[in-house]
Design a binder for these strands. Sequence first.
DNA 1: ATAGTATGAATGTATAGACAACTTTATAAG
DNA 2: CTTATAAAGTTGTCTATACATTCATACTAT
Lengths: 252, 252
Amino acid sequence: MVHEEISIDKSSFIPIYYQLFKLLEEQIRRGDFKPGESLPTENDIASRYEISRMTVRRAISELVSAGMVYAQQGKGTFVATPKLDNIVFEINDFNEDIKKRGLNYKTTLLEAKIVRADENLRAKFQITEENKRFLFFRTVLSAESERLSYEVKYTTYSKSKPILESELKDPSLPGLVAAHTEYLPVSSKKVLQVAVCTEEEALILGISPQSPVFLIEQTIFDTELRPVGWSKAVYRGDRYKLTSYDGWYKKD
Amino acid sequence: MVHEEISIDKSSFIPIYYQLFKLLEEQIRRGDFKPGESLPTENDIASRYEISRMTVRRAISELVSAGMVYAQQGKGTFVATPKLDNIVFEINDFNEDIKKRGLNYKTTLLEAKIVRADENLRAKFQITEENKRFLFFRTVLSAESERLSYEVKYTTYSKSKPILESELKDPSLPGLVAAHTEYLPVSSKKVLQVAVCTEEEALILGISPQSPVFLIEQTIFDTELRPVGWSKAVYRGDRYKLTSYDGWYKKD
DNA sequence: ATAGTATGAATGTATAGACAACTTTATAAG
DNA sequence: CTTATAAAGTTGTCTATACATTCATACTAT
């Protein structure tokens, strides 16, 4: 296969550092520089293309960010070996998958009320006070009139921030928390497990009991690391999967 | 709470850009600059600390990478709102969890042989040739004499690259592929699903049939995007979980 | 021979300045 | 008042230079 000659066009509106980044990336991909080998020195590249060394460094730093090369002070810059045992499952929203497929999805609010915390809930929110009240939501997500997931959510509650009608449409946990917390919610922890669903969940989702499901618990914390929101969601195992891509070739 | 006064020490061995990065990060964390608000301009910061604008830009670019701020040309640099519905499950190795807990884990090779591809396998490797041969491995991972996962792996095979004794100890798919492929393996796709285990898997893992399990399929591709390795692993659902942290506060 | 020292080469940090690209605001023209 | 133009402000790119830091090598003294 013949590769078209790529080079640097200093008069282009595309930044030089970006052109060089793409050029080096392509050369690495097609094996001009192999894993473990070193790239030409920054000064070599700079004089080769008659550009500044700082511009070369900008290009190389992009390669470093992409994980394709690594630099060692005093030695040089070397091509990395693609790491293939790294697994990164990234989901902006566990439901995004469904939405992307263009299906008609909708969230149904089963219940919304103010509750007093029982012992279990107090543990989740790391409080001892017995009379503290929380907002409680139960929702079901469905697509094409098929129920896909069931979620219960709790957030802190204060009288000064009542429930708004608009929240009830599609109450996401981060959204609810932001609306009912004094402090800024800044961090979140999620735990994914597999389980077989309970009879109640099976009934709600319209699947047979003991079916395998994804179970995701999420806790949201404020600036002082106090829990201000907690949710537990059950996703049908036969309708969800997570995909991870790795290595040099990534989805653009 | 009183915060110690942080500032820039130009004589420190810690780079100025890094000091400034940490300084700005801390100011954002404690709310001096709130989400949506703008940071001081680069020139302001530069003259405020009597450093170069390029050094300021280096610091801010770190903040951008961390997702705490975003820059808009011509307008300014603004504090981002923590995104809490992003889920990133990252596992260097699905077994790392086990290893970190300091348990005695070991990989047991159940079987290793050369096989001819059946129709199913040919589909996985996107080939039609019927007589092509592949390497086949079956392994079990156990910790504290408890079996945790069961994995079957296939890689391309050529006579010129025979199986080495050393491979049989702990044959990871990327390792096997690298040892038996002509071209460089550069990318990988993994799909995680939930399932209930088969009777065979239940027997091997010593759990009851129909137990919930994680199921991870991995395909490794070479530079020409040809599949050169495929594996399917079953992990005990009661022994594995995935955790994701999100937002501004991340684990250090 | 060994250890210490000097030298060169490579990446890392920092600066000052120039201009480009984009946005907002102020100004002028109709 | 509206619209077009100019100006100012802000981030983005690029350059040339200087020095620091780290590493490998060659050299020197013992």
